[in-house]
Design a protein around this nucleic acid. Structure first.
Lengths: 108, 108
DNA sequence: TGCAAATATGTCAGCAATGACATACTCTGA
DNA sequence: TCAGAGTATGTCATTGCTGACATATTTGCA
């Protein structure tokens, strides 16, 4: 994994000069993952609040129950994109999403 | 486009019963698009604040200048995923992203 | 003006995310 | 304790996003 990162860096024209550089990258990935985790639990709360089954949400999303389960568990194969579309499908507004994101503190 | 939506609905097991149902979908798409537009302009502001060129951001993102241009113009082929990764690459925190999203008012 | 840096636009092969399905597991009420 | 509803997990063909490249256009400064 670290080796793969290094490869990508070099391919992108970066000189890999220090461990710190790699740590920064890790920080960015951390923020990304935490964002997903935060939003996915927000989604589950929201869905339960509405007393919807995963299947109900799935049909509103034009997706499937199994994918909703993956969204809510922050599965690596699920994009932020789909996650946010799912939140929107539960009727949350931009400000609601913002509030969820607000639970994350500055990390960088 | 509307025909395509109808197709997807029916494929997903929805009975297309009313125009309202289609309008609801449109609302959701609207929120999604506005989210992208808001975040992409936040990204541009942030990049200029740092006095980075698109190329600079691209290398930090491990992407290309042309894709950064597309991200900042909220191009349809660019996902929220990449958009948010770009914001993170400029060093914004979760709360910063939340603040950007806060500019959107409740829509639904 | 004219040149160089920055940005925009179009295209495409490759790969990652997707919906769908099958099936296993976990609850909850009777 | 069992049945049925809800949820989790694995897999796969298709679709859509991706980085990269080429090239056009814009910007800013001497």
């Amino acid at each position: 994994m670290d080796e793969k990162k290094r490869e990508r860096l070099e391919k992108a024209g970066w000189q890999v000069v220090s461990v710190k550089e790699l740590l920064d990258l890790t920080d960015e990935e951390t923020v990304y993952v935490e964002l997903k985790v935060e939003l996915s639990s927000a989604l589950r709360r929201r869905r339960k609040q509405l007393r919807w089954s995963q299947e109900m949400l799935a049909s509103r999303l034009h997706s499937s129950q199994s994918r909703v389960a993956k969204i809510e568990s922050a599965d690596p194969t699920v994009s932020l994109d789909l996650l946010i579309k799912a939140l929107i499908a539960t009727g949350v507004s931009g400000t609601d999403i913002a509030r969820s994101l607000g639970a994350l503190e500055a990390e960088i």
